[in-house]
Amino acid sequence: MRINLLDKAKKLKNLGARYITTVAYLKPDTGDKVVVRHLFDLNGKLEELTYEAEFSETLESIKEVYPAVEWSEREVMELYGIEFSGYPEEEKKLLLSSGGHPFPLLEVEKQKVSRKRHE
């Protein structure tokens, strides 16, 4: 588990940064890691906390500092299979709780990276 995310989030919070959203995607060039990016607004400018996660890695949640991150982190968990700490099993899904293919966007992007490699 990476332990410095929460500290960085606290620093941003102290500067007055507002949380916007969390974006995740499979690294387009190599397809070996999932990029997870928390975006913040600091006086109209975008700031970000970015890290590249191994598949199924557990990352530190920043929910304690930015409560609104909860739904975004849950979305990343269900769409990409990346775990965030501090979520009980029943809260790991958000949009697809009624079922569906596991980690759908991860699968789509894996196919894209693979197609690109074979071109």
Partner: peptide
């Protein structure tokens, strides 16, 4: 001509 990823908040 197809986006790799579009995230909407």
């Amino acid at each position: 001509d197809i986006p790799y990823r579009v995230k909407i908040r």
